[in-house]
Simulated assay, not measured.
Amino acid sequence: MLGQSNGEGRGAPYGPRLDPPDSRIWMWDWAAGELRTATVPLSSQQTRAGYSPISRIARRHLEAGGPETRVVVLNAAAGGSGLVAQPPAGTWQVGHLGPGPALYDIATAALDAVLAAIRDRYGVTPQTWLYWHQGESDHGTEEADYARALDELCTAVRKHLGDDTVPFAAGGLVPEETPPPRVRRALTGLPSRVEYTAYTDGIANGGDGAGAGLVHYFREAAERLGDAMFDASLRAAVAAADSVPHKPLDVSATYGGGTLVVTWSAPLCRWTDFIVQYALDDGPWLTAHRQVPCEVRETVPGLTGDAARVRVATVNAGVITEFTTAVRALRT
């Protein structure tokens, strides 16, 4: 887990009855410099303050892997850190020379130690899955700058591992805290820019964790975000540029006050865009203008019909799927 405080873990409540240790899940103990049975809170560079989505992700990997699976968590996230921004807690920008800690260098050094410890203990080289949750410290960062730095980070850590197909899944910030829109657009567009990546949006009404108002996810929201990020990493694992996309799932629509809102579930494939079409009453199909190409929702304002039909197709680098079966929404 790379990123800042929500990745490090700020969710409450937690405790031994909620989080009994599992001998099949290990963590990197930063203080001892060795592998130990994972706890909640996880060991981290800073403060063991709460539940992290990566704890839920670890259990999902364990469930998916079968009885012989073992999971090791490296919680490298650091509260208050930046990507392009350079706060005192450090920055994740690749090649950062100061001021503040160079978190990419710290994380990759710890990753090397973790992989060596796993090889010593088990005699195997494990699969590696990368997770990212960050953005609150980059309120003033331009979308293009954040996107460039995020893409560089993803590419660099994969190069460090010697595998450019390592899945990289990013999670969204608390929606009610008014997350930086430029950062969100950069995160949302990640799958269209870099292969084997995926993004999942933040959990609505999830912010009320330890300190800092709504910035931090509380326990249940952190668990839900962990589930969503795990599912996103499965999409990332198959998100090759030349993969054949398939139609979106679970398309739904609401039509109120002249505004049509269309949502759908993310398909298990790579996409660079979606095509959203709507038809008013018995009229022809019209194509909505997409504001954020990779977002799994669309809002169309200023409509006057009594009913609307909607359908959605997935696009991957010019390959377009068939449209979904039309869904009908009555104006309210």
Rank of each mutant, 00 (worst) to 15 (best):
T200W: 00
C294H: 09
A76K: 00
A85D: 09
D22T: 09
G3M: 03
P88A: 09
G79L: 06
D22N: 15
A232T: 00
V71N: 02
C154Y: 02
E136W: 07
L173P: 05
V114K: 04
L18S: 13
R331F: 04
G50C: 10
W285L: 11
T332I: 14
L2F: 04
G172V: 03
G100F: 07
Y199H: 10
L18V: 07
S52G: 08
W92F: 08
G209A: 05
L111A: 09
N316D: 11
P301A: 05
P167T: 01
C269V: 12
E63M: 07
G202K: 01
A212D: 15
G33K: 04
G318D: 08
R193T: 13
R119K: 14
P13A: 09
A288Q: 15
L83T: 09
H139F: 15
A110I: 07
R328I: 12
L18K: 12
L111R: 07
T299H: 08
L249W: 09
P284H: 11
A76C: 11
A228L: 08
L225Y: 00
D282I: 05
H160N: 13
T263R: 12
T188G: 01
G140S: 08
L173G: 04
F323Q: 14
R121F: 02
N75L: 03
F218C: 07
R331H: 14
V251T: 08
R219W: 06
Q45Y: 15
I203N: 02
W30N: 05
Q46R: 14
W26T: 12
A210C: 14
A253T: 06
P191M: 03
T188D: 06
D163L: 03
A78Q: 13
H160G: 13
D145Y: 07
S192Q: 15
A89S: 15
P67Q: 11
E220V: 13
R148I: 12
D231A: 12
G258Y: 11
A144Y: 13
E63L: 11
A170W: 00
A149W: 01
Q277C: 07
G202I: 00
P175E: 01
Q45D: 14
D282R: 10
E176R: 11
A279S: 15
G9K: 05
M27S: 12
V71K: 01
S81Y: 02
W129F: 10
P53K: 00
V157Y: 02
R309H: 13
A221N: 11
E223V: 10
T165E: 01
P88F: 07
N316Q: 14
T178L: 15
A38N: 05
A240I: 10
I320D: 08
D145F: 08
R70H: 14
Y255Q: 06
S44N: 14
H246A: 10
C154F: 05
M27N: 06
A117K: 07
P180F: 04
P284C: 10
E63G: 11
F230E: 00
A12E: 15
L115D: 04
T155N: 15
A186S: 14
G171E: 00
A326F: 07
P20C: 05
G202P: 02
G100D: 09
T263A: 12
L303H: 02
A107R: 03
G82I: 01
A253Q: 02
I54T: 05
Y51P: 04
G140E: 08
V124M: 09
T272F: 09
A64Q: 13
G318N: 09
C294V: 06
I320R: 15
